[in-house]
Amino acid sequence: MKLSEHLVDLMQNAVDACAKHVLIMISGAGDAISLTVQDDGEGIKSSEVEKAMRGEKAPRGRGLLLLKEEAERNGGKFAYSSAGKGTSIEAEFRFPEMGKIGDALLVFWQEFGIMDFTLSMTSDKGVFVFDSRLISEKYGRKDDVQTMVKVRKDVNYAQTNLYGGI
């Protein structure tokens, strides 16, 4: 799976955990990309995560196992914490296939307002910060497909500027 697809999976976990806000941080340094996703939801039971990490069938957490495997396959790192309230995932990749972050975030369009996100993308070329709570203010109408396309375009454009071709 691409990094953008892992992001969708992590955000779906946040929806399932009734999170109201997700902080997404992507940063690139040299040949490594790190992804951090923190939500303020109810967290996933550690027993569920441990089962999934052992490859056993679990209601949730298979996506975390895939992310851990992907990060480790690429010589990176993976860390997970969920202490009752909120969940934090950190993964570091080397030469990952990033996919398009704007395409991934668009998937949660109907959830914005119920579960919002703040995205921070950094590299040695600059910083890009985006907050879904400001979509109406910045783009006008929220609830139409044309606005979805504009937001996706802006996020993907920033990603290309920061990390090169995607």
Partner: peptide, 11 residues
Amino acid sequence: MGTSGLEHGAV
């Protein structure tokens, strides 16, 4: 958009 859907190109 389950994990399986993501693996098969749902995005």
